[in-house]
Write a protein that binds this DNA or RNA. Structure first.
Lengths: 124, 124
DNA sequence: GTAAAACCTGACATTGACGTCAGAGGCAAG
DNA sequence: CTTGCCTCTGACGTCAATGTCAGGTTTTAC
């Protein structure tokens, strides 16, 4: 499949796909004329890349881990990094949970006030 | 307290504190000579700002919410935005949980292989 | 065969949250 | 008074993940 099709299939821009290649996250084959050609498996790979980006991993980090999330060969070195990254994500989750709770309390508080007729924000 | 002290107290750089002021997140008073002067309450405020940044909120979003997380006056308008942001954070948490699970499976898999003597990554 | 659509490379532009540097002024200690 | 540290403003630099544009080639559709 060509780059435009892959873009359509994944919802990722053509520019982004070329960027992923630049970052070595993708290695499409080339037609004689130089056009990129992707396998069907690329769709899943791109989606996974997107998910990792969404989790806050950088392209460098993704590059280090992606091969090991697809195959099974893991050095203890990489295992360490995987665990470190897991910890980082864990902390981020905790921080987000705390922030969410804080938002929840703010919202609950606001609703309560609203129900009481509450503090008018447009007070004279 | 002066800017350097606040920086030391919060672990945030002096540059960042000036940036926060630029974004209207802080409004220190000024000494006659123009030096910034912060109240003790600024410490907590800066820490909260940091937490919201860490949760992925932009300075604009923080600016909208911060007053309402400290006082109690909330318009239905802002309430809507609070809920929207809560939803966004919720989705981000889900994505992170999924990624963490994925990492966990990868790690577990790797450990299993390792215990079996497994695939040697430095194979001749 | 020709035009439209898709593709190529290369390069500069953007956004956010700062870092960093220059040049100048402010302030407590000896 | 001067030394040294802190602070000021202003401005340019950075980094990551793209967007966008220019100028040219290739593929597809009629």
């Amino acid at each position: 499949m060509r780059i435009g099709e892959l873009a359509a299939a994944t919802g990722v821009s053509v520019r982004a796909l070329r960027y992923y290649e630049e970052q070595k996250l993708l290695s499409p084959t080339r037609s004689p004329s130089g056009q990129r050609h992707y396998s069907d498996a690329s769709v899943a790979r791109v989606l996974q890349i997107q998910q990792l980006y969404a989790a806050g991993l950088s392209s460098k980090t993704i590059l280090r881990f992606l091969p090991y999330m697809e195959s099974n060969e893991v050095t203890t070195e990489v295992l360490h990094r995987l665990r470190a990254e897991r910890e980082r994500i864990d902390k981020q989750i905790s921080a987000l949970l705390e922030t969410r709770d804080r938002l929840d309390r703010t919202i609950a508080n606001a609703v309560e006030i609203e129900e009481q007729g509450g503090v008018c924000p447009h007070w004279p």
